[in-house]
Design a protein around this nucleic acid. Structure first.
Lengths: 177, 177
DNA sequence: ATTTGCATGTAATCTGTTACATGATTCA
DNA sequence: TGAATCATGTAACAGATTACATGCAAAT
């Protein structure tokens, strides 16, 4: 499926970046729906250059530190747009260890089941708070044509997802009583 | 992490089954939070036998078709309970191609962006209907001590998740107008 | 001076999917 | 008798993580 390829092309279609900067994007902005470690990014960048989807310039930081700044090519842009416009089949439900444990939770004592649910709830509440903090950075809904508008949409989706997970866990705790 | 190991042990801790039956469980009941193909299940069963977590009896169907019915051992049960009772760190947000596309959707024309969102909404609505159908099989909330109660909890979680995804996509469509 | 962050890469391993491969049973 | 389902396995490949490995730059 080469999804990492398209994630990288999409990011570089907005601005040229180094592998390190791409990594930071995956750690921050894209974190709620995609991720990639540097050990996966660097080989993929190499491959994309071989495929003529990217080119790079070397910049020097300080006296000798080399940075490779990657830029998307016409071919890369074409392939990216083709992917973006192609039909999308929604992903199968993701694997979640937490739900797997809840599925087996009748094999736990009542106390331990409750402890599991409470612990999961705390973790999701903390994640939700973090997302709500990010949302504060948007003072208003960005204009529909801006890249920030898309950022806003996916952040909203992440917030709604976490809220629902919290509500579900609360409902589970209530039903167990 | 060996999560497939524990998913299999958990299922076999409820009743002895063949690899084929386990596969069917992953396709049906567990489908909303875990999955595994037969090509992954059979080697894992072999490994779990080597580790003395499982044993199997051969049953004959008809005149010659051999079925291996796997049963959990004390060691398997111990390791499963240890896993079930251990601390659970919630999974990082799952990768979703659909959200990745929405993140880049400002690079599409207004029409194509709307088409993307509408298409995704239809697919999630269809998945939601399917889940609501499954819920109908529960005439009432099962007793808290029964295995069916845990089934009910995870089904409820899946329903709430799909409902929220649908609501989010509707909100995205509304904001684009 | 030392630590943290910037910056790039490879190797080994694990997890999971698709394809290859075979054969029996059941139902229409 | 043919198709769908039951039943079990392996091989090749793709995707992703952890660990290995190196070195510069900036801040304390």
């Amino acid at each position: 499926m080469r999804n990492l390829k398209y994630a990288i092309l999409g990011l570089l279609n907005e601005r040229s970046m180094t592998g390190y900067e791409l990594m930071k994007e995956f750690e921050s902005t894209l974190n709620e729906f995609w991720s990639a470690k540097h050990s996966q990014i660097y080989p993929e960048l190499k491959k994309l250059c071989d495929e003529d989807c990217l080119v790079y310039d070397i910049e020097i930081s300080g006296t000798s530190l080399e940075k490779k700044v990657y830029t998307i090519t016409d071919k890369g842009r074409e392939e990216f747009m083709e992917w973006l416009e192609s039909d999308t089949v929604i992903d199968p439900s993701p694997k979640e260890i937490a739900r797997l444990k809840i599925f087996f939770s009748h094999q736990l004592s009542g106390d331990k089941r409750e402890a599991l649910l409470n612990d999961l709830l705390l973790q999701h509440q903390s994640r939700l708070e973090h997302l709500l903090n990010n949302q504060k950075k948007f003072n208003h809904v960005p204009d529909v044509t801006q890249a920030e508008f898309s950022d806003y949409l996916v952040l909203l989706g992440a917030i709604m997802r976490e809220e629902t997970t919290c509500n579900w866990l609360k409902e589970c705790i209530a039903l167990c009583k």
